[in-house]
């Protein structure tokens, strides 16, 4: 099943298109800030490092566009696969060779991992490219390196263990991307329209992002917590937990019940 999944994914043009888009989104800010003709004194007052220059923390217009299409990047790559199998009748052939539960579990895991990876890919490319451009100097809040303020996400961690901070950010965004992709997959058990399935996470994300700020509950803003470096809040864990468990239970329950053959 896994082998089949990988061959299917690699034959999808959308995967390569999204990877190319991710590469562009990640590299463009680096190209713009690539050091040229600088002296030793140049970074005296505002030293640059991959940590402070990372597109996630140094918000540029490229990052704003990336944040806007984040849910689409996560969902577009594979979350319509179940609906596609159903519409084409391929699911019948697959289920003659493999147990239904195993099929559903593998599909969920692959979609989650792929959605998460594609969603964080631009940030990963950006950080790696920045490591080629700037030295890994220590972060110092009082030395012009203050992208994470007191109202930011785990400020102490950023200044004491920047690599752990970056890894944690990647991990959280990966989970968030995976959950968005899983929500689309879960919807495909009820709706067979592939387009609706692909767009659902984007609409849900926008809906939540309008709802909480409109009630003045900015600490609960989904984009603020995951994409805009807001201060850590328990609702972040709630979103991850509810999103993961909700999509998993919904997908598995409805998937098992669905009449396929």
């Amino acid at each position: 099943m896994l082998k089949m999944e990988f061959s299917r994914i690699s034959s999808r043009p959308v995967l390569w298109m999204l990877l190319a888009a991710g590469l562009f989104l990640g590299l463009w800010p680096v190209i713009q800030m690539w050091p040229q003709g600088v002296t030793d004194q140049y970074y005296m007052m505002y030293p640059r490092s991959p940590f402070v220059s990372w597109m996630y923390l140094e918000v540029s217009s490229t990052y704003q566009i990336y944040a806007l299409i984040f849910p689409l990047l996560a969902s577009l790559v594979y979350c319509d696969a179940y609906a596609e199998d159903f519409n084409t009748g391929l699911i019948k052939s697959i289920l003659t060779k493999i147990h239904k539960k195993s099929y559903l579990m593998t599909r969920y895991a692959v979609n989650f991992l792929l959605g998460g990876f594609i969603a964080v890919f631009p940030l990963l490319v950006n950080f790696l490219a920045l490591m080629m451009a700037f030295p890994l100097i220590e972060n110092n809040f009082y030395y012009g390196m203050a992208p994470v303020s007191q109202n930011g996400f785990y400020q102490d961690l950023f200044y004491q263990h920047p690599f752990v901070y970056i890894a944690l950010r990647f991990f959280l965004l990966f989970l968030f991307g995976g959950i968005l992709a899983s929500l689309g997959l879960a919807l495909s058990t009820a709706v067979r329209n592939r387009y609706i399935v692909l767009v659902f996470p984007f609409l849900l994300f926008l809906g939540l992002d309008v709802l909480f700020p409109s009630l003045n509950w900015y600490s609960y803003s989904v984009s603020g917590l995951f994409l805009w470096n807001y201060q850590e809040h328990w609702s972040m864990l709630l979103y991850l937990f509810a999103g993961f468990l909700g999509s998993f239970v919904w997908y598995l329950t409805a998937g098992v019940r669905n009449e396929t053959v």
Binding site: V14, M17, Q64, I65, L68, I69, L72, L73, S75, L76, D80, R194, Y195, L198, V199, F202
Partner: peptide, 14 residues
């Protein structure tokens, strides 16, 4: 794919 159209239009809007 209409989903690719939406990603293109949202990018342009961004």
């Amino acid at each position: 794919s209409s989903a690719i159209i939406i990603i293109l239009l949202v990018t342009l809007a961004g």
